[in-house]
C-alpha cells in the first residue's frame, strides 16, 4: 500500500514518467479522474452520494472491478486457446511499448542473470539462462492486445509455464504466480493460477526465432495470449507461487487485475 500511496502523490512520480506515460496519464492522481466524473453529476445518479465525496465513487468502481475479476475468472475456459496465425501475419516491426523509452529499458547480462523461484514450490534453486534454454520449447504466433486498444501479432518461443511449475514442484492449488521484473520502478504483476496453467502461457526466450531482444524483454518474458499486454511481464527476475494478492504495477493504479482476453 505504501508504494501505491507514493504513486498517487502528485509531483513525486511525474519526473519518473517519460512522455509516453505522461500522454496516457496526464494526471496520476486518482482523485482527479474521479472528480472528472463527479462534475457531471454521474456520481450522484449512480451512488446517491455526495458528489464531493470522491472516495465513495472510487470504492464503488474498485468493487465493480473486483466483481469483473470474478466474472472473467468464471468466463475463463482453460481449454480455450487464443487464435494462432500464420507467420505471414506477424506485425513488422513489432511495437516496443513501456512506460519508459527504449533507452531506459533494462540492460541485462544473460551470464549474470538468474531466475529466482520463491514461495510455495519444492525446489527454490535459482535458474540460469543456460539451464532454462534446455527446457523443451514451443512456438506460438498469437495476437498481443494492449490495454490501450491496439494489437499486434508476434511470434514467441519458449517453455510452457505449466511445465516449469510442475518441474519445480509448485503448489498449483495456490492462487497466484507473482512476477517481479527488472524494469525501472520495479514492474511486477500477479497471474492467476488457472491462467498460469493455460497451455499457451509461456516463459518466452525468443521472438521471431531470435533470442529475445532487449526491446521485448531479454532475457525472459512471460507470454500470456489470454491476457492484455500489461499482464505479459518482460525482464522477469523472479516468480513467486503464492496465495496472497500482492498487487501489480498497473493493477495498483486501476487497471483491472484479471484483464483477460
Amino acid at each position: 500500500m505504501g508504494r501505491m500511496r507514493k504513486l498517487l502523490i502528485p509531483g513525486v512520480d511525474k519526473k519518473l514518467l517519460v512522455k509516453d506515460a505522461v500522454k496516457l496519464m496526464p494526471d496520476l492522481t486518482r482523485r482527479r479522474f474521479i472528480t472528472g466524473g463527479a462534475s457531471f453529476g454521474a456520481l450522484t445518479l449512480l451512488t446517491g452520494c455526495d458528489v464531493i465525496d470522491s472516495s465513495s465513487a472510487e470504492t464503488m468502481l474498485a468493487k465493480i472491478s473486483k466483481f469483473n475479476d470474478a466474472v472473467q475468472a468464471w468466463m475463463f475456459n482453460p481449454n480455450t486457446l487464443a487464435p494462432t496465425f500464420p507467420e505471414s501475419a506477424i506485425t513488422k516491426p513489432f511495437p516496443f511499448n513501456a512506460y519508459y523509452d527504449l533507452d531506459d529499458a533494462p540492460e541485462i547480462d544473460g551470464k549474470d542473470w538468474k531466475l529466482e523461484v520463491r514461495g510455495l514450490v519444492e525446489n527454490k534453486e535459482p535458474w540460469t539462462l543456460e539451464e532454462l534454454y534446455k527446457l523443451p520449447q514451443v512456438k506460438q504466433v498469437t495476437r498481443h492486445i494492449c490495454v490501450e486498444g491496439w494489437s499486434a501479432i508476434g511470434s514467441w518461443t519458449g517453455a510452457p509455464l505449466r511445465d516449469f511449475l510442475q518441474l519445480v514442484g509448485a503448489d498449483t492449488r495456490a492462487k497466484y504466480v507473482w512476477f517481479q521484473c527488472a524494469d525501472k520502478d520495479g514492474y511486477n504483476s500477479p497471474l492467476d493460477m488457472a491462467t498460469a496453467l493455460h497451455p499457451q502461457t509461456q516463459m518466452t526466450f525468443k521472438f521471431a526465432d531470435e533470442i529475445l531482444p532487449r526491446a521485448y524483454g531479454y532475457p525472459m518474458k512471460i507470454r500470456v495470449p489470454t491476457k492484455l499486454g500489461f499482464k505479459n511481464p518482460k525482464y522477469v527476475i523472479s516468480m513467486e507461487v503464492t496465495n496472497d494478492y500482492k498487487g501489480g504495477y498497473w493493477e495498483d493504479q486501476g487497471y483491472n487485475s484479471f484483464s483477460g482476453s
Binding site: 496516457l24 496519464m25 496526464p26 494526471d27 496520476l28 486518482r30 482527479r32 479522474f33 474521479i34 472528472g36 466524473g37 457531471f40 454521474a42 464503488m60 468502481l61 474498485a62 465493480i64 472491478s65 469483473n68 490495454v147 490501450e148 498497473w250 493504479q253 486501476g254 487497471y255 483491472n256
Partner: peptide
C-alpha cells in the same frame, strides 16, 4: 477533448466503462 471525456486517464475510463456496461 478531455473536457468531454470521463475517467481522467485510460485506467479511470476503463473502470467507468466496465462498470456502466452492466
Amino acid at each position: 477533448s478531455r473536457s468531454i471525456t470521463l475517467g481522467g486517464w485510460l485506467g479511470g475510463a476503463l473502470l467507468w466503462h466496465f462498470a456502466a456496461m452492466w
